[in-house]
């Protein structure tokens, strides 16, 4: 009796283990195409906080649908980089510039590459805010030594005074990479990664995002602190001949009457533009272009056919608008 019971229990456990194993393989195969994000590692040269695994296939189906391969350094870039590569234009920024949601050729960097026929090197990386880029600016210039332009992308011009202070002092919190130990191994499985991220979002239920947005709208930027921040930018880039362009693309929303609005304080934008001008940095505000494209062509810079229109990351139209405006600025300066 006891032997039969044990046999039955072992058989049942085996059944579950085998089923789970097969299901796990099938789901991993599915996620390989649906949501395949490489593991990231600490960036040793400091140009960014981290880099993705080099020469790795990625795909995304959760927001837009695209796939590609990271370059030899782990950036979303058409070009590979080696010590002899001459970088004419260096792009720094967030996941918007990383542009995993669109084909590489349709990203701002990809478009600028073909429009200008110059070496445009994109090190835009997810989670890198304007302040992160400023923190990494000196190291990025040291490594890539761009000859013509450094483009820093940002979707916000409002920052907390604490974060500005940390950036100036050089102790802004870095984005950690968890590529070692068990977590590092688990991260290599696409299904587990997606599972983790889905559960994490489900648990947070977007509450933190709402709070952040409200905080931004209630924050007032300290002009003195901003001056100090730009002083740091100038100091960090003083050894480079490249001109800095800051491209700002605000998030948008459509109101009931169909009018496009921007999620920012006009005064903050004006202040940011004023300080840029004072420091001889070109400030490219995309608001007007976004509005014009919407009014004339009903085109929205954010959102995809499988996500909320007007929110999320830049779509191919958004990238094209930014690339076009940057192209105009560069031609104008030249």
């Amino acid at each position: 009796m006891c032997g039969n019971f044990t046999k039955k229990t072992i058989r049942n456990i085996l059944k579950y283990v085998i089923s789970l194993g097969i299901a796990f393989i099938i789901l991993t195969a599915f996620c390989f195409f649906y949501s395949n994000i490489p593991v990231h590692y600490k960036c040793t040269d400091g140009a960014t906080d981290y880099v993705w695994k080099a020469n790795e296939f990625y795909s995304i189906g959760t927001e837009g649908f695209s796939w590609g391969k990271t370059n030899n350094e782990g950036y979303q870039n058409i070009l590979d980089y080696n010590e002899n590569t001459n970088v004419d234009i260096l792009i720094m920024g967030s996941s918007h510039m990383e542009a995993r949601q669109v084909a590489m050729k349709e990203s701002t960097a990809g478009l600028l590459n073909s429009m200008l026929e110059e070496n445009v090197y994109n090190i835009g990386t997810s989670g890198h805010t304007f302040l992160t880029c400023v923190s990494n600016l000196e190291a990025a210039i040291k490594k890539y030594n761009p000859t013509d332009y450094i483009i820093i992308e940002t979707d916000s011009v409002t920052f907390s005074n604490d974060n500005i202070e940390s950036t100036i002092k050089g102790n802004l919190e870095e984005i950690e990479s968890y590529n070692e130990g068990i977590i590092g191994i688990l991260q290599q499985n696409q299904f587990l990664r997606l599972l983790y991220s889905q559960i994490e979002i489900l648990l947070s239920n977007n509450i933190s995002n709402d709070v952040e947005e409200k905080d931004i709208l209630n924050t007032r930027v300290d002009e003195k602190k901003m001056d100090e921040l730009f002083y740091k930018i100038n100091a960090d880039s003083s050894n480079s001949s490249a001109k800095i362009i800051i491209v700002y693309h605000p998030s948008i929303y459509l109101d009931y009457d169909g009018k496009m609005n921007f999620n920012h304080n006009e005064k903050d934008v004006e202040l940011f533009a004023k300080i840029c001008e004072k420091n001889d940095i070109y400030f490219l505000d995309m608001s007007e272009r976004f509005n014009l494209e919407y009014m004339n062509n009903n085109i929205i810079p954010y959102g995809f056919n499988n996500s909320t229109i007007g929110t999320g990351h830049l779509n191919k139209y958004g990238h094209a608008m930014i690339a076009d405006e940057l192209y105009k600025v560069i031609k104008e300066v030249e």
Partner: peptide
Amino acid sequence: KKTSGLTIFFVFIGLIICLAFTGE
């Protein structure tokens, strides 16, 4: 009760979690 049935069920549950809309 069968391994094939369990596998289909686990795949289905996995797909639900992967494809779920996680906003509120």
